[in-house]
Write a protein that binds this DNA or RNA. Structure first.
Length: 509
RNA sequence: GGUCCGGUAGCUCAGCUGGAUAGAGCAACAGAUUUCUAAUCUGUAGGUCAUAGGUUCGAAUCCUAUCCGGAUCACCA
């Protein structure tokens, strides 16, 4: 029990002992830390009680503090300003609290798995057709911190990732590769695999843009042009060929995806990102049909004349949503439904968090509502950790327009800045080259991590690559620096045979 | 158009389960400090908390309306 809770409990008991018949709950009792300009440690706000109990502030304050004095060991003094009762605690209380922190290496951490509850965190779930960008970094830092925090609180955490490894996006990269005159591979070019796949994707986009432009110049509207596009048809065809498991298409798909994974794993490595299990859309994309059929029998879904299957969520403030196409194939949300059941089978978790950008808020609302109606156990503990986009000073990042900030580039850049700053200061002169690289990496990546986590997830944020990131003020390098200095103090103390004693003993002397 | 989210100092953001005089960092200005873990330190200035109403002892915080910005509303994923 914290000291605030202790005070609140005592005050509550006292208040409920009144003769006016008024009843209060813990929620009614507000205890704040006292602002610096006033004397005291904690402040009890008395206004609500004064009114209900029809007592004068000083009478009530006197009565409460007398009660506190007799029941709270840490009580030292009190004063009243308007309706604010400031409570001062004894120095012994504070020294004990500090001593507790000092002597406990695991202060603030629960024992691993002590909650006896599993929580799944799914992130960053990239597409396999292009390398990670700035937005993924925000996702990864959010997901990792959440997972770490839950673990520190005693949850068993399962980190998972779902790869969008099929469909039109990867087909575009594949098409560009098939039609390239000189074929680049990671081996013959030395380029990181995820970047090669991404380059082909960009190449396709360029050709596609050119084609549309040409068609529009013949007098078509953009919409008509897209319908007439030859490239679009070929991509659709390639996707169908993949679904029909045409050997050379499947082979190429496997190869290009393997390039992507090899590349992206290198980026993961720098970010210390590991998963308990990775899921692939190619393995789940046509699942969920059984679940839909069951739901159909139960009357949760309904079928239209063209035999497409829908769910009506209008009474929940949402729309009608398609879950099976008229040709019987599944859609995005159907596989997500199926995947939840699969994940529950794989890991018996109680809670699940999806770390996904806020553009998918509606999707998750619909998904969770459907799962609730299907009677999924624990469906009320599914959560979408939504976050805003990372934008550039010039506006949004658009991969089709090449205005994307690449994750690998940013990581290199911040590590480089860390290196320059460190060398400027000459602080690492006596450190081995190997050790230096590690330090640059941890300062640079740490700075970026802190920078991206500092902003409330719900807000979109602007990242200015030109200004890069701060190393002064409220930043990770500063915190790291303070830690380094305290460690240095301890080392120096030891070298000079100065003993560091617990705080309460120091106070006594 | 419906729904959801954001709008706080010049900039980037805290504060939002209602509580005392709205806080940081950066930038600006004034000063300190010659490198000793100084990747500094002290101080000054800077705000109609988008706007207008309402609720109340008390509103940046809750409610309503309006304005601005964004997201979303596919037989795409």
């Amino acid at each position: 029990m914290t000291i605030q809770e202790e005070i609140a409990a005592i005050v509550l008991t006292y208040l409920n002992n009144n003769d006016k018949g008024e009843k209060f709950t813990l929620k009614d009792i507000l205890i704040n830390t006292t602002p610096a300009d006033f004397t005291g440690d904690y402040t009890i706000v008395l206004f609500p009680f004064i009114k209900k109990l029809r007592m004068k502030p000083d009478e009530l304050a006197e009565a409460i503090s007398t009660d506190l004095k007799s029941k709270l060991r840490a009580y030292q003094n009190h004063n009243l300003v308007k309706g604010f009762l400031n409570i001062e605690l004894t120095p012994a209380f504070w020294s004990n609290s500090l001593g507790e922190v000092l002597n406990n290496d695991h202060f603030g951490f629960s024992k691993k798995g002590s909650k006896n509850k599993g929580i799944m965190v799914e992130y960053p779930s990239p597409n396999t057709n292009k390398p990670l960008h700035l937005g993924h970094l925000r996702n990864i830092f959010l997901g990792s911190s959440l997972a770490n925090i839950m673990e520190a609180n005693g949850y068993t955490v399962y980190r998972t990732c779902l790869y969008n490894d099929r469909g039109t996006n990867i087909s575009k990269s594949m098409w560009a590769y098939q039609h390239a005159s000189t074929k680049h591979t990671p081996e013959n070019s030395g380029i990181k695999g995820d970047h090669i796949v991404g380059d082909y994707y960009v190449r396709f986009s360029d050709l596609y843009k050119a084609e549309i432009k040409e068609l529009v110049e013949t007098g078509l509207t953009e919409e008509q042009a897209k319908k007439q596009s030859k490239l679009e048809k070929e991509i659709a065809e390639l996707t169908v060929q993949w679904e029909l498991k045409l050997p050379e298409v499947v082979e190429l798909w496997k190869t290009m995806n393997s390039w992507f994974y090899a590349g992206v794993r290198k980026t993961y490595e720098r970010l210390d990102l590991h998963f308990d299990k990775e899921y692939y859309e190619s393995e789940v994309y046509n699942r969920g049909r059984e679940t839909v059929e069951e739901g159909l029998k139960k009357g949760i879904f309904y079928q239209k004349e063209d035999s497409s299957v829908w769910i009506d969520l209008t009474d929940a403030g949402l729309d009608q949503k398609l879950v099976l196409r008229s040709n019987g194939t599944t859609v995005y949300i159907t596989q997500d439904i199926a995947l939840v059941y699969q994940k529950q089978k794989d890991f018996n978790f109680q809670r699940s968090v999806y770390v996904v950008g806020n553009e998918q808020e509606y999707h998750f609302k619909v998904l969770f509502e459907i799962l609730k109606r299907l009677g999924l156990k624990g469906s009320e503990h599914l959560h979408h950790l939504s976050y805003g986009m990372v934008e550039l000073p010039t506006g949004k990042m658009k991969s089709r327009e090449g205005t994307v900030v690449d994750a690998d580039d940013i990581l290199d850049e911040v590590v480089n800045i860390a290196k320059e700053k460190a060398n400027e200061q000459g602080k690492l002169a006596e450190v081995s080259a190997d050790e230096k690289e590690k330090i640059y990496e941890s300062i640079g990546v740490g700075a970026l991590r802190y920078f991206l986590l500092k902003v409330d997830p719900v807000k979109k944020m602007i990242y200015n690559p030109a200004e890069s990131i701060d190393f002064n003020g409220n930043t990770a390098p500063f915190i790291q620096y303070i830690y380094a200095r305290t460690q240095s103090l301890k080392r120096n103390a030891a070298a000079q045979q100065i003993e560091i004693v617990p705080f309460q003993e120091a106070i006594k002397n």
